[in-house]
C-alpha cells in the first residue's frame, strides 16, 4: 500500500491489470548471498506496477515490502502486523523506489496544473492535496518552506549534487526544469512521502 501510494501520487504508477510478475529495484546481490541465483531487474513500465504484481521469492522476500511486514507467503496470514521500526524509515527515506517517486512528485508540482509562476506556498498546498488529501496548516507550510529555501540555496551552489539526486531511478526527468529547483523540491517531496500521516492509514 505504501509503495503503491508513493507511485500513485508521484504519477509513476503503471495502472495495467494482470500479467506476469514484475521485478522492481532491489539492492544488488541479495539473492546471490542466500542461494546463488541472480536477480534480473525489469525495466520501464514494469518498475512501477502495483506491489501486488511484485515477484516473490519466499526464501529472499522483496526487501522493501519485507521491511513493512508483507506476509511472507510461508504460512497463511490471519492478522497483519502493526509495527514501527528504523528499517522502515530507511526504506522510505533511501530506497530508489521512493527517491524516484519524490523526484516525480516534485516534477508534478513544478509542471502540473499550477502556473510556472505559482508561489512555493501554492505548490506546497498542491503537494498536501496529492499526498494527504487536505490543505496544509501555516506552521506546516513554514517548516517545508524553510527546508525548500535551504535546499534551493544548496543545490544552486552545487549542481553536481542536484544532478546525482535527480538521476536516481530509470524514469526520464523533465530536462526543461531548473536542476537546482527540481532537486530542492525532490527533497521536500521526500519529506512528504515520509510523514506519519502519509504512511499510516487512519
Amino acid at each position: 500500500m505504501i509503495r503503491d501510494s508513493a507511485l500513485a501520487v508521484s504519477g509513476l504508477l503503471t495502472e495495467r491489470l494482470g500479467g506476469p510478475s514484475v521485478k522492481p529495484y532491489q539492492p544488488a546481490g541479495l539473492w546471490k548471498e542466500m542461494r546463488n541465483d541472480a536477480y534480473e531487474q525489469d525495466q520501464g513500465a514494469d518498475l512501477y506496477r502495483r506491489s501486488l504484481y511484485v515477484y516473490r521469492k519466499r526464501s529472499v522476500p522483496p526487501p522493501g515490502l519485507n521491511a513493512f511486514d508483507a506476509p511472507d507467503r510461508e504460512t497463511s496470514c490471519v492478522r497483519r502486523q502493526r509495527t514501527n521500526t528504523p528499517l522502515k524509515a530507511l526504506v522510505t527515506l533511501n530506497d530508489p523506489t521512493y527517491v524516484e517517486a519524490a523526484r516525480a512528485l516534485a516534477q508534478r508540482l513544478l509542471t502540473e496544473s499550477v502556473s510556472a509562476a505559482a508561489s512555493s506556498k501554492v505548490r506546497i498546498a498542491r503537494a498536501f492535496r496529492l499526498t494527504l488529501a487536505r490543505d496544509p496548516k501555516p506552521p506546516e507550510i513554514d517548516a517545508l518552506l524553510r527546508l525548500l529555501h535551504r535546499q534551493q540555496a544548496l543545490y544552486a551552489q552545487n549542481n553536481d549534487a542536484a544532478v546525482k539526486l535527480l538521476s536516481i531511478g530509470e524514469s526520464p526527468r523533465n530536462e526543461r526544469l531548473d536542476i537546482a529547483e527540481h532537486a530542492a523540491w525532490t527533497v521536500v517531496a521526500n519529506v512528504l512521502l515520509n510523514m506519519d500521516e502519509f504512511l499510516s492509514k487512519e
Binding site: 526487501p63 528499517l87 533511501n94 546525482k164 539526486l165
Partner: peptide, 15 residues
C-alpha cells in the same frame, strides 16, 4: 544495512 546510505546528491547535513 539495506537502504542505510542516503541517496547520492543528498548529504548528511541535508538528511
Amino acid at each position: 544495512v539495506l537502504y542505510l546510505s542516503n541517496p547520492p546528491g543528498l548529504d548528511g547535513a541535508t538528511r
